[in-house]
Every structure is written in C-alpha cells, then in structure tokens.
Nucleic acid binder design. Structure first.
Lengths: 338, 338
DNA sequence: CACCTCAAGTGTTACGTATAACGTCGGCGT
DNA sequence: ACGCCGACGTTATACGTAACACTTGAGGTG
C-alpha cells in the first residue's frame, strides 16, 4: 500500500552521505579522479543495500539516447530472420543496446509507419527490404537507418548491408548447368522484394549464357504446402518435364521434394532441386538439400554494427557479404534425355 | 549542421498560439470539454506541419510507464518460441505495448540478471521457464512477472500460463500403446527445465499403467544431427530394438526418422515416431510426423494478456491451455514380434 | 606570504512531457 | 443584480537523471 516506491539516486545519496551528483558519477563509472575510492565504495554499498536501479526513462530523457534499436523484419517464424535477429541482438547487446521488434504489418492494412506507432523511444532502425514498405514515410530522415538486402541506390543517407544473393544464384545455376541440366524451372517466391528480383535476374542471365538451356518460372507463396501443390501441378502437366528446380527458399525446395516423392519422381535421379538459405530444414529432410548458404547471423551482426556507427554519428560504408553454395544430396547429373 | 533538432510540444504550442499544456491535452486525446474543437484542430495542424513526434523518453518519465514488456525465451531460432513471440507481440501491439527480447544468455556465464542488464525501461516481464534461471535474482519482486510453462507453485506473486504438456504426452503415449507398442524409448531433450521433467513423468506414468509395457530413456541435445546420432546408436545397439520412439521435440523426431531411414528401418512399418510442437518441419518431412500440436501463438498471447493485466494492477489467474495430438504418417501398428 | 593547482566534491540546471490547480469570462436562473 | 457554473484555457510543478560550473581545503612553488 504505502509508497515504498523504487529508490532514486537521491535516496542513495542520502544513505551514503553524499550529493546526488556524486552518486551519478560513481554509478556512471566516471569517478576516477573525481571521487575518492573510499567514497565510491560507500556509494556502491548504499546502492546495493537499497536495491537501487536507475530509472532508465529519466536517463534516456537526460542523455537523449535510448540504447534501443528497432529491427524491422517480416516474421521471426521465418528461421532466416530469426537468425538475423540473433546476430543483430548479440552485437547490440555487446554495445549495451536492446533490440525492439516491429510487429510485422501482416493484415495491418497499407503502410503502418513504424516511427509513428513505435511504442518506445529509438536510436535507430535496421530494416529488411522485405518489410520496409512503410519506411519511405515521414520518419525516414529523422532516425539513423540501415537497410538489409536492399537496392544500394536507395537513398544517399542510408547505408545498406547486403548478401551477395546474385552470386549465390549464379553458383546454384552454374552447379546445375555443369551437371548437364538444360531444362530448369525457377520456383520463385511470390513476394515483391528487391531480393527476389535480383535472384530472378541472376538466374535468368546464367541460364541464357548457356546455349540450348531454357528456363521457366513458377510463382508460389512461401510455404511447404504451397510449393508442394505448385510442383505437383508442374510435374503432372503434359509436356516436357524439367530436370532441375531452382527454389528461392528452402521451404519451397522442401515442398518440391515432397511433391516429387509422392509422384514417384526420384530426387536427384530424375529431378535435381536446389534451395536457398540453408535452414535447419535443409538437413532434416531426405535427401539433404543442396542450397545456397547465407551467413544470416553475420548479416544481422554487420547490419547492427553499421547502424551503431551511424547512431554514433559515423557514416557506415555499404557492405556485401559473400555466400556459398553447399552441395548435398538433392542435386545430381541430369538424366539422359529419351 | 545547425540545431534544427526535433520539435517539442513547446514549439507546437508556439506555432499554434497556445500553451504547451494545451498541446499535451489535444495530442493526448483528452481535449473534449477542455479545449474547443477549433483550437484542437489548429494544434493538430501545427503538429503535423512541424512533423512533431512526442519524446517518448520524456513521456515515460512523466507517466512512469514505458509500454514495453520484456520477453525472456531461450532462442527465437527455435520456431516454437518465434511463434510464442508472435502471439505475445500481437497482443502487446494491440495494447500499444512493444516487446523487447532479452538476448539469451548462451555462453554468457552464469546468471545474467535481465533486470540489471536490460537496456530499456520496462513495465513487466514475460519469461519462459526454459530461460529463466536468472529471474530468482534481485528484480524478482520489482516488476510484474508472468511465467510461461513453469511450476504453478513458483511464487505467490507470479502468475503462470501453461500448456497442458502432461496431457499431450499422455495422448501420445496412449496413441502408441493403443497401436500395440510395448517397447518404447523416450528421446528426451537434454535440457534442465520443468517442461521436460513434466513430460518424462507423464510418459513414464502412462507406460507404467499398461502391463508388459516398458520404457527406456535416451538423452540428447536439441538438434536434428544430435538426434540422428543418438538414434543411430540406439538402433544399431545389440538387444531388443524398440518399436516406438517418443521425442520431446519435432527436431529430435526428424533426426530420428532420418537415422531410421539411413539404417533401412522403415517408419512407421518397423518404428513409430512421435514428435512435439508441430513445427513447420513436421509436415515438411516424409513421412509427416505424428506430433503433439501446441498452440504456440495463443500461448504467447495469453501470457502477454496476463502480464498486461498484472501491469494494470490486476491479478491474473493461472491458466492451462489444452493441446492435441495430431496423428500423421510417422506412427502405425506395432510390428508383430518375432 | 601570495599565488596557483589539484583532488574531491556540491549546487543547479535542463531534458520534454503530463497533469493538478488555478484563472477568466460570459450566460443564465432567480 | 448577484452568484454560480461550465467552457476554455493557462501556470506551475514534478518525474529522476546527467552534466556543467563552481567551491573548498590541502599542498606545492617562487
């Protein structure tokens, strides 16, 4: 009932017999040369015995810093973004920053502006292009902003950290073409995003460079069941059946493999499949997926590092992280044509 | 270069020709009866044209509320917790709250106290028992706390929201026993947590209730590769081979299925496997997993709802959410004994 | 002895907001 | 004509902290 609310630095000061300013100095770690070691220890002891916790809101107001960054991603149920978050959060934590997640605007009508609706004070924003429709809004210039996987030519002020997606796609295509495949299908994620445009372009260019090779495209929502349905339709359709399937995501690849197995189409004997991301899923299924391995954690970590330098007034450079193709069991030599 | 920093409510007041207090009233939505509609509109117009955003830190200091809740979970790369987060975040957002994630203390020595190291001001904490070693610390009573999947007898002050884990395990066991299985192995997650203790106890009790049925236990780190190794060892060991495998997690079940397939042990023909959680993985592999379906999103949502009532000074009741067994292709009748 | 320096603190202010307490002014019932 | 009340605001304060400017006494220096 009674007050007994949280003790403040003033209470600690009274208990230690010093001024509030001294408490602030000691607990802020700036006492060497300003406060004697004995007094500092007395202050710390008083703080401990009172169970003092600084009021973060007051500190934020005074310093103008909140040590909180906003991460804007589509959904953490997507393992890739969960890993990006892990990387970002660990770098943030190392610098005393917290990571706030912006609830993905699924179902939330048109353009919900994170700057307007963010419930907490922020120092900066780290945003994936896959979820950043709204960022063009008002707050754009108001806060340091670093984009993840976005067109480098976005804005002059915002830095970008990208994965070498195009190169990854070229590696996958080269792998399949090298195995003799000439009839490929791109199972593309049905999402409007720079990332996916880049993949499609890189794949198309790679295939076009090989005489006699052809590429078709099928669009599909990002899910196992959806991919399974799409690939079932593709494989049972009349006409020439493709020998290789290039998927924009491991989830799609998994669905594709499932569809093939159900139809009795052997993978990789009759159909090679490649994925993207190298999720846990990739090695959980049989055969294990040949896929483009993305350094998701490092991606998030680099992005956060760039954002933190921007928050400190620096100008982070654009970066591009290399990716590698991991060859496993879902790809093999093209079957001989009948 | 020049100042031109964010406009404050005072600037808006000057622009609209009113006092700062009036701005606060209007923008806070409490103007009816205190400010005329015309003035209110003038204030809003001024705020809009200046691009005014309230300083959240100042507001938090004044109101003593931060509209931010801390979610403590082991890792979001675990899809289950990503879904819990999604549910919690959506409820939080509906109440104008943000969700801050506490970086999982993996590698971070002993007991990092979230209350001490949290970088932002908080209104409450929602913590999974799987990651809450540190919560016993100082801040325990300082902040509203709701526990997820924890012993209801934790503390008098803290409410718990639980999943009916024990019942889920009983359903799985009943399903297998009903199919004639009498030689079961529990593939248990090697994690110290109330959740897993409850599972083991419920499974043991179910098996013990059936004459002639026996249960062995194998411990295993929570991952596909780890489970694969453990189950390979189990299946190639001399002696009677079990006919059913009850796994604490879909990841373990997936690893088990993979091991069986590699050894030529047919699932479910020779070995039935059940999982737990019903992750995306469960329907991505072949055969699809029979597993205990957990309402992860609702779990998080209920937990956050309980926390919000606690933050509002209420006393949330303990809850238990029902779970269901989803029967798919990885379980079948016990093979005839030779 | 007058002067400067340095350690060890203290006093005060400002951050930007929300809100309680206080004016003012015209209308209206009696 | 008087008092009272509601509509419409304003003034003043407090939230808890960090940081700047200042004080004081002790010791060193010429």
């Amino acid at each position: 009932m009674s007050a007994a609310s949280r003790p403040t630095s003033k209470d600690v000061a009274r208990a230690a017999g010093v001024s509030q300013a001294a408490v602030s100095l000691v607990l802020g770690g700036k006492w060497p040369g300003r406060v004697s070691a004995a007094t500092a220890e007395r202050v710390r002891e008083a703080a401990r015995s009172l169970g003092y916790r600084p009021n973060l809101a007051a500190r934020d107001l005074r310093t103008g810093r909140t040590r909180t960054a906003l991460l804007v991603v589509p959904a953490l149920t997507n393992e890739f973004f969960a890993r990006v978050h892990a990387g970002a959060a660990s770098v943030a934590a190392a610098h005393g920053f917290g990571v706030l997640l912006y609830p993905s605007p699924e179902g939330t009508g048109p353009a919900t502006d994170p700057f307007a609706s963010a419930p907490a004070a922020l120092d900066g924003v780290l945003a994936s292009s896959m979820a950043a429709q709204a960022l063009s809004g008002i707050g754009a210039g108001a806060l340091p902003l670093v984009m993840l996987d976005s067109d480098p030519a976005t804005g002059p002020g915002t830095a970008t950290v990208n994965l070498a997606i195009a190169d990854g796609m070229r590696q996958a295509a080269g792998h399949l073409l090298g195995l003799g495949h000439r009839d490929l299908v791109h199972l593309a994620a049905g999402v409007d995003s720079w990332t996916f445009e880049v993949r499609a372009a890189a794949l198309a260019a790679s295939v076009a460079a090989v005489p006699g090779a052809r590429l078709r495209t099928r669009r599909c929502a990002l899910g196992v069941a959806e991919a399974q349905a799409a690939v079932t339709a593709l494989l049972t359709a009349p006409g020439e059946r493709p020998t290789a399937l290039v998927c924009d995501d491991d989830l799609l690849a998994a669905g594709a493999c499932k569809a093939a197995r159900r139809l009795g189409v052997r993978v990789p004997g009759e159909l090679s499949v490649t994925g993207f991301d190298d999720l846990t899923l990739a090695t959980a299924i049989e055969p294990e997926l040949t896929t483009v391995t993305l350094p998701a954690e490092e991606f998030g970590a680099r992005g956060m590092a760039a954002l933190l330098t921007a928050v400190d007034g620096g100008t982070p450079a654009d970066e591009e992280l290399p990716v590698t193709l991991t060859v496993r069991g879902s790809t093999g030599p093209a079957p001989a044509r009948t």
